[in-house]
């Protein structure tokens, strides 16, 4: 079994309805994503999943010096940032890619699939 990170990217600045055009669209995506999450749990793929707060609320910490240096905002300046992710466990990449396609449909976003190095 291999563990995979499936991350979803979205705009750095979110609108009133997250990354969605309307309240209804957001509610639908949330409902579909929850249903997908339940499926992951029932079928044994689930390790963890959650959405993240807006990227602008991130803080970068450099603890390599004597005193930690704090920087307000995300590590990379980018128009798109990771907005949420799943960690799943699957027998191989083909299974992970199928799940990612379902997750992408559910949350209405592109999903990047990446295996963890220590399988």
């Amino acid at each position: 079994m291999t563990q995979y990170l499936m991350s979803v990217y979205g705009p750095a600045e979110r609108t009133e309805f997250g990354n969605y055009p309307s309240q209804e669209a957001m509610d639908e995506a949330m409902a579909d994503t929850s249903a997908f999450n339940v499926r992951l749990q029932e079928e044994g793929y689930w390790v963890f999943a959650n959405g993240l707060g807006q990227a602008t609320t991130a803080t970068v910490v450099d603890g390599q010096g004597r005193e930690p240096v704090l920087t307000d905002g995300p590590y990379l300046e980018s128009k798109e940032h990771i907005g949420g992710f799943w960690i799943i466990e699957a027998p191989d990449l083909d299974v992970a890619l199928k799940l990612a396609a379902e997750g992408s449909r559910a949350c209405r976003g592109k999903v990047e699939v990446r295996a963890f190095a220590g399988a």
């Binding site: 291999t2 027998p91 191989d92 990449l93 083909d94 992970a96 699939v113 990446r114 295996a115 190095a117 399988a119």
Partner: peptide
Amino acid sequence: RTANISYRVPSSED
């Protein structure tokens, strides 16, 4: 190797 692309013939569906 890293992404674990499996060494098999795809299922009849794929």
